[in-house]
Design a protein around this nucleic acid. Structure first.
Lengths: 151, 151
DNA sequence: AGGCATTATATGTCGCGACATTTAATTCCC
DNA sequence: GGGAATTAAATGTCGCGACATATAATGCCT
C-alpha cells in the first residue's frame, strides 16, 4: 500500500510535464513570428500587468530566480522590448520597463491564447475549471516546498 | 472579443508551467538522494513498463527527440542504471535496458508519488480527475501540433 | 560612525529541450 | 543488385532552469 507503484500515465507529474511541453510546441511558430521565446512572453505578461517591476519582483511573479531572469531580461533589452535601469532610490535593484515595442507585443500576441484554446478542444467552462484546479495544485505544492527545511 | 487579453493567472499555460516547476522543486531533494534527475526518472519509469526500448521509442513515449534522449541515456549508462546496446537485427537502433541498479530504483522511488500526494493537498479522486483532464488537454494539444503544416 | 548581516542582482556550471544537421544502416524500387 | 530515399542516433548550438557563489548596496546595531 505505502509502496504502490504507479504507471507513467497514472502520474500527474508526467501529464503536467507533457502538457507544458505540448503548449510550448503549439506556441512555437507563433512565438517565432513574434521573435520572442515563451519565458520572454511571460515576462512581458507580467509587465503588462505591472510595468516597472524589479528583476526580483519579476522572478517572484513567475517563480524564477535571478539567475534565470537576469539573462532573460538582458536578451529582451537587446531585442528592444524592455529597458533596464538601476533604481536611484536603491541601487541594488534593476527596474525593468516596457518599451513601445514591448507594449505593442500585447496586442500582437493575442494569437497565443486563441491558438491554445483551439488546440485544447475544450469548452471555456472546462478550461476555466481546469485552470483553477491546476492553480490550486501548483499553489499547494509551492507552499509545501517553501515549508520544507531546505526551502 | 477576438483580441481579448487575459491576465497571467487566466492563462492555463502559466498554471501548467508553474505546476511543472513546482513539482520539480518538490521532487528535487528526493531525486538528489536517489542521485537521478527528473527526466532520468521518467526514462526509468518508461523502462519499468517496457524494458529494452530503443532510444527512439523512449523519446516517443516521453515526447522527447533523440537529441534529448541520447545524452540523457548516456549519463544514465555512466551512472550504471541502464545498458546501451545496438540492436543486431537493425544496427541503426540502440536498445536501452535496465541494470539491476535501474530496476532497484523503482522500489526506492515510491517516495516521489507519496510526497507529491502529500504536497498536492487533494483527495485521490480529485487528483485522478485532474490527471484525466490534463491528459485530455495535453493529448488534444499534441494532436493539434502534429496536424500543423510544420508539425 | 564602524562593522556586520541582509538584500538584490549577476556570474558560472550543469542538465535539459528544441532545432538543424550529420552519419550510418536499412529499405525501396527500378 | 545498386543507387536513392528513408529511418535511427548522434552532434552542435541556443535558451532556459536550478544551484552555488560572488559582488555590491543597504540596513542595522551598538
Amino acid at each position: 500500500m505505502s509502496d504502490y507503484i504507479p504507471t507513467l500515465d497514472q502520474q500527474l507529474c508526467f501529464s503536467l510535464y507533457g502538457a507544458s511541453m505540448a503548449i510550448n510546441r503549439a506556441y512555437k511558430p507563433l512565438l517565432d513570428a513574434l521573435e520572442i521565446t515563451y519565458p520572454q512572453y511571460l515576462v512581458l505578461s507580467a509587465l503588462w500587468e505591472t510595468d516597472g517591476m524589479s528583476v526580483g519582483a519579476i522572478g517572484e511573479r513567475l517563480g524564477l530566480d535571478s539567475s534565470n531572469v537576469t539573462p532573460l531580461v538582458k536578451r529582451m533589452e537587446g531585442a528592444g522590448l524592455v529597458s533596464r535601469v538601476r533604481n536611484p532610490a536603491d541601487e541594488r535593484q534593476v527596474v525593468v520597463s516596457l518599451t513601445d515595442a514591448g507594449r505593442d507585443m500585447q496586442a500582437r500576441s493575442t494569437c497565443l491564447g486563441q491558438t491554445l484554446f483551439a488546440a485544447g478542444g475544450m469548452s471555456v467552462e472546462r478550461l476555466v475549471q481546469l485552470n483553477k484546479e491546476v492553480q490550486a495544485f501548483r499553489d499547494s505544492v509551492s507552499r509545501f516546498v517553501s515549508e520544507q527545511p531546505r526551502g
